[in-house]
């Protein structure tokens, strides 16, 4: 879409909501401020109705700040806590039936390529762990098998947050949760490893305790999806409400997880590596490093 569509005509500018003008003047549409700009620039996510200390809303806020071209992005969601912030984010957002997200994203991406073949339009799935690892697992994997050029981001709070703290496939083994009254009987579904074998060109595992790593991962994931193939970012976004820790403990919980089992990881296919190397060679002349 870029400048022409976004920038209001002079005569109309005063009629537009202040918020929109802010997004254009001080926001991320025309200039990328990244995670470092949070707090000093206009954000895509301004307010949300999540619980205090919610890791999911923090994950969304950080991921939104990392989008390379928010004005040319559509986020596809699904029911779950993430919906509540995403529906209020200043990016196109679609959300319908639980678990259909990667099929919807496939349709959107293909149609955008049919109708706007000369333009970069990013299609990003951003949903909960249950939405991907349980009800939407087949559609997620098949979008990767088909090598759809979309980015899939899991906001992993290891529980069904939205429906009241039930066991998800991504919950830890032994964890006592609703519908797992004697503790979960099997380990976390290995979606992260499956992404590598299922055809993703880039995968990253990160937590909300490492915002700059998260930013780089999301940015790479979107650029690689645009140019090479499907990408997957799994973000640990702990849920104070259902995991029953104090709402100011989210970052600490995520930091502990980084030490124990949620270490940072990145994987590239040869094509993805080559693409980034080319980009870096190009950008180095401008003083920006992509990797």
């Amino acid at each position: 879409m870029k400048t022409r569509v976004i920038t209001p005509a002079d005569v109309f500018e005063k009629y537009l909501p202040e918020e929109y003008r802010d997004l254009v003047d001080r926001g991320p549409y025309l200039e990328n401020h990244g995670v470092a700009g949070l707090g000093t620039t206009k954000e895509l996510v301004e307010q949300h109705p999540h619980c205090a200390g919610c890791g999911v809303s923090l994950g969304i806020r950080l991921a939104a700040a990392s989008l390379p071209s928010p004005e040319d992005t559509i986020i596809v969601g699904t029911p779950g806590c993430s919906f509540f912030a995403l529906a209020q984010t200043a990016v196109n957002y679609s959300n319908t039936a639980f678990g259909n997200q990667n099929a919807v994203a496939s349709g959107i991406k293909r149609m955008l390529q049919v109708r706007h073949p000369d333009k970069n339009k990013d299609v990003i799935v951003m949903v909960g762990d249950g939405g991907i690892a349980d009800i939407g697992l087949d559609l997620t994997l098949h979008s990767w098998f088909r090598r759809e050029k979309i980015t899939t981001i899991m906001l992993d709070n290891e529980v069904y947050g939205n429906t009241g703290g039930q066991e998800s496939g991504m919950s830890k083994i032994g964890q006592k949760l609703n519908m797992a009254p004697t503790g979960k009987k099997f380990p976390k579904v290995p979606v992260y490893d499956m992404a590598k074998t299922a055809g993703c060109a880039y995968t990253a595992r990160v937590t909300v305790a490492s915002p700059y790593k998260l930013e780089k991962a999301v940015r790479k994931a979107v650029l690689i999806a645009r140019n090479v193939g499907p990408t997957y970012v799994q973000i640990y976004t702990p849920c104070p409400t259902n995991m029953k820790f104090p709402s100011n403990g989210t970052i600490n919980v995520a930091k502990e997880a980084e030490k124990e089992y949620y270490s940072f990881d990145e994987y590239f296919t040869k094509e993805a590596e080559q693409y980034l190397a080319e980009q870096n060679a190009l950008k180095n002349s401008q003083g920006i490093d992509e990797k």
Binding site: N100, S106, G107, I108, K109, M111, R115, D138
Partner: peptide, 27 residues
């Protein structure tokens, strides 16, 4: 027809068709 694929099941078909139509085409 400009694009076509065999999907993984009918829920996925109708979801992909939904997405393609959201993006502004005839499906």
């Amino acid at each position: 027809v400009k694009d076509f694929y065999r999907a993984e099941n009918e829920f996925a078909v109708m979801a992909a068709i939904h997405g393609a139509s959201l993006a502004g085409g005839r499906v």
